[in-house]
């Protein structure tokens, strides 16, 4: 599992991905951690196949007992099917996930972890002195869906929005936006169902000050590429299967 520090300030953001031991028929995913003085939040902790490499990687940054929070943007298996294993590893942690999916996500096993349901209009996660905002992103692509915005680090963890289908071992950051488009087009057209939801999200996100847009698959957007992505997504027709 590769680890990349994407923000270093009063707290840290770490991206985990490009796991070289991942079975080939499983979609590659990016996991993220926010590390504060005494706590650690894991975002989109991943599928059950990824649990061991992910946990081992996190242990470079935080001890198990300081992994106090998990976040799942939506209910997909690549996002959170490892829940049942985290549940047995963490003795007193919270899972922040859409209220809409609570009774579904519990199928993965959630007994010792406290499920903190995120209401449709969003919320916050407080880690020591850091406050993260949970931005509604419903129907992008899941009907109950949130992104995580850190106003201090100016990072938006955007779940499946901004995802790209890449060859194994692709670089962590977008280097040439124009050549990256083809890796994103099908994913967004096919997985994203609603143009209306897309417009509402873009409007909301344009009001945020974002340096880094960090999706759950593919590469991270930095600087001007964030705006390029929003402009491109704005003109894209989605929900193309019908």
């Amino acid at each position: 599992m590769k680890m990349t520090k994407i923000y270093e300030g009063s707290h840290q953001w770490i991206m985990f991905g490009r796991d070289e031991h991942k079975p080939a028929n499983i979609i590659d995913s990016n996991q993220y951690a926010v590390r504060t003085a005494n706590r650690c939040l894991l975002m989109e902790p991943g599928g059950s196949e990824l649990f061991a490499p992910m946990m081992a990687a996190v242990l470079h940054h935080a001890p198990v007992e300081q992994i106090t929070d998990l976040f799942a943007s939506h209910q997909d298996p690549d996002v959170i099917s490892s829940l049942g294993l985290w549940d047995q590893a963490l003795s007193s942690a919270k899972l922040h996930a859409p209220a809409l999916w609570e009774s579904f996500l519990r199928h993965f096993g959630c007994e010792s972890i406290e499920y903190v349901p995120i209401p449709d209009n969003g919320g916050t996660i407080k880690l020591d002195s850091v406050e993260l905002q949970l931005i509604p992103a419903h129907y992008l692509h899941s009907s109950g869906n949130f992104h995580v915005y850190d106003p201090q680090a100016k990072i938006l963890m955007s779940g499946d929005v901004g995802a790209a289908l890449e060859a194994p071992g692709a670089p962590m950051f977008v280097e040439n936006f124009d050549s990256h488009i083809e890796k994103m087009r099908y994913f967004h057209q096919r997985w994203m169902p609603s143009n209306q939801a897309k417009r509402a999200w873009i409007e909301r996100v344009r009001n945020l000050d974002i340096d880094i847009l960090a999706p759950q698959h593919g590469r991270i957007f930095k600087g001007d590429d964030v705006k390029r992505f929003l402009d491109w997504f704005d003109t894209l027709q989605v929900g193309t299967a019908v």
């Binding site: 081992a56 990687a57 242990l59 470079h60 940054h61 935080a62 001890p63 198990v64 007992e65 047995q88």
Partner: peptide, 13 residues
Amino acid sequence: SEGAAYAQSMQAP
């Protein structure tokens, strides 16, 4: 996690 800074913390779980 051999060699990781917090590898030891996995012993309890």
